[in-house]
Every structure is written in structure tokens, then in C-alpha cells.
Simulated scan of single mutants.
Amino acid sequence: MAAALEGLSGQWTQPLSLGQAAKAKPDPNATQRVPSARSYPRALRARELPIEAFNSIQETQKTLDNFEPILTAKYRVVTPFGNAIRREMSTSWRSEAQNATGFRHDVQTYLSGLTNKVRLVPKSNMTLSGRSATVPVTVQNNLVQSVELRLVLRSQQGNRLAVGDPQLVNVEGGHSQSVKFGTTANANGPVWVSAQLYTPDGQPYGDEMMFEVNVTEITSTVILVIAGGVLLLVLAGVRIYIQRKRAAARGGEDGGDGEDAEEAHGQDEDDSEAPETDRCDRAHTLVPEQPSDPEPDTGSQSAGPSGPGEKVDH
């Protein structure tokens, strides 16, 4: 309507300021009675665009106004969708209500699909160890042009987990960028954190993303206890290794003596089971007589006279 009035300027209308309009004399031939709504012809009312159509057009215009500030090549989106919105308001749809509804739906769906290509990558719950750490948040841009946004990270419990300031994000077309926020923990436990994109003019862009951050602080005492336990395990392993090594060395040194002892033990068992004559023969075999040995002295064995029938060799 503003464009139409501007086009009429200089031909059928003359623009005036509010002060000039107040001083102007009214036309005596102009009617001062506003007609009622019933006076509008029903045939014309049936051909007008319904209220739902203007609500849909307003929603599309709002989406375009929120999408335009983050674009670096605005003409590639604003010009074609601006023409589509003006066509939605064209009087040519008055006799084609169903086709007009379909056209408005298609325009809004296509524009919403483009806006959803710039989004926050869903983030799973994470754990922070220590009082200070960083929380990464990834922004994805699947458009063919770069975008500029502002990313804000908020802690639902700022007294337990404080996060860094908002950051400006410039993401090239078809790329993703990870933004790291510094955090300071004042207490252990889970804390919910929200991430939200904003346009450069401060309007929220897209849906807010929530995720949980679990803070676990490791104190110096806990570190000493863990280090002491690890040291004890290492010392125990070294001791077991040394004991096994010494046992193996002793077994190697006693190996030969053990075999000789087993052979001697086996011979003793055989001697105990063999007859007495075999023992004597074996003793003679083991200790043979030498030619130079003197004959055995039998005199020292018995001092008395020989009994009858006993033969003594001289």
C-alpha cells in the first residue's frame, strides 16, 4: 500500500505534512459519513482475500525479515522472496482461493527450509573436570553464502557454573564452525546450559538448544591418593617379578644335582630288593682285587684252635 501511494504522488495525490493537513479547508462536497460494513457488496466481499491469507503473508514477511540480517549476499534471497510476497497479495488470486493457499504455503515452506540450514548442531551431555574448562558449541551453515550471527551461552545456575561472554560467529557457506566458551565452576554436580543464536540486530534466530554439563572437581588430596595406589600396584608387580626370577634361577642351578640324587636313590632301592649274593658280586665288581694286594690275613680273625673237619689253607 505504501508503494502504491508513493506511485500516485504527483498525479492524483499531493503529500502534505500533518500541520498542513490540519490547516487545509475540507471539501464541502465530500461526505462526512462513514458507510457501515453492511453496505459493502457481498459479491465483492466473497472475492476478497480472507484474513488467513494476510496472516500467512505476514508470517512469511516476518521470516524473511529475520533471515535477511544474517546474510552477506542479501539480494539473492530478499529480491525473489519479496516478489513472491507481493504476488501473494495480488488480486489475481481472488477467483482461485485454493491455488492461492497452495502458493502461500509453498513460499513459506521453501523460505523456512533455507532458514533451517543455519542451525546449532545438537550437543550431548558433557562432563567438566576441574574448576575451569571450555565448552564447545558448533554452528552449521549449509547455505551457499556465508552468514554472520551472535552466539550466546547461558547457565541456568550461574552461581554454580559461570560461562563466557557472547561471541560473534562468521561461518562460510557449506561449513561448520566450533565456538569455545570458557567456564568457571563453583560447585560439583549437573547444571543445565542453553545455547541460542541471534541476528546482528539482536533478534533470536532458530530454536534454543539445551544440554547438561556435569561438573566434577578433582582435588589435590584425591590426586595423591590415586597416585599412591598406582605406586603400590607398581611396586607389588616388581616384587612378584623379582621373586619369580630368583626362583627360576635357583631351579636351574639345582637341576643337575637333583638328577644325580634321583639316580642314586633308584640304585639304593634296587640294592635293598636284590639278594645278598648279588650284593656281594656287585661289591667285588665295584672293588676288584689288585695283583699287588697281600693275601688276606686269617690269623687275626680267630685265635682259638680249629675245630674238627675244618680245613685251613696255608
Rank of each mutant, 00 (worst) to 15 (best):
Y198L: 10
D27A: 08
K180S: 11
G229R: 01
F103M: 11
P26W: 06
Q290Y: 04
P15F: 12
E253Y: 06
A274R: 12
Q156S: 13
T277W: 09
A24D: 05
A43M: 09
G307Q: 09
L64Y: 06
S306T: 09
E59Q: 14
G307P: 09
G304P: 05
G10T: 07
P69Y: 01
S306W: 11
P294Q: 06
L49P: 12
F54I: 06
H284N: 12
P35T: 07
V163E: 05
I240W: 05
S36Y: 02
G299E: 15
N188T: 08
E48S: 11
D293H: 02
V118A: 03
I218V: 15
I242Q: 14
P305W: 06
G228W: 00
L111I: 01
L153M: 07
P294T: 06
L120G: 07
T183L: 02
Y241W: 11
N99D: 13
Q167L: 08
G255F: 07
V222G: 08
L168R: 10
K62R: 13
A162P: 01
G189P: 05
S272K: 15
S300E: 11
V78R: 10
T219I: 06
R246C: 00
Q61E: 15
A195D: 05
V107P: 04
S56T: 14
L5D: 06
G164S: 11
D281M: 08
I240G: 05
V163N: 06
Y241F: 14
D268F: 08
S124P: 03
T221A: 14
Y75N: 13
A4R: 07
T31L: 13
K311R: 10
R239H: 01
M1L: 14
C280M: 07
V137L: 01
F54K: 11
L71S: 09
D313T: 09
E263W: 06
P122M: 04
I242H: 10
S129G: 05
I51E: 14
V137N: 07
K123M: 13
I242S: 10
S39H: 08
A37V: 12
Q140L: 12
T183D: 04
A261M: 10
G19C: 00
L149D: 04
L143D: 08
F181K: 09
V193K: 07
F103Y: 15
T79L: 14
L44M: 13
G229E: 02
A84N: 06
L114T: 03
G309C: 04
G229N: 04
V191C: 09
Y40R: 15
N214S: 14
D281F: 11
G130Y: 02
F54N: 13
E310G: 01
D165Q: 08
R33G: 08
T91C: 05
G189W: 02
G206F: 01
L235D: 02
A73M: 06
A24P: 00
P41Y: 02
R42K: 12
A185Y: 00
N186M: 05
A37N: 10
A73D: 15
V225G: 06
E217R: 14
Y75I: 09
A261H: 09
N142L: 15
D278C: 00
G266I: 01
E88T: 04
L114F: 08
S39F: 04
G130R: 07
N66D: 13
Q196H: 09
C280I: 12
S132N: 11
T63A: 15
T219L: 07
P190W: 04
N186L: 02
W192D: 14
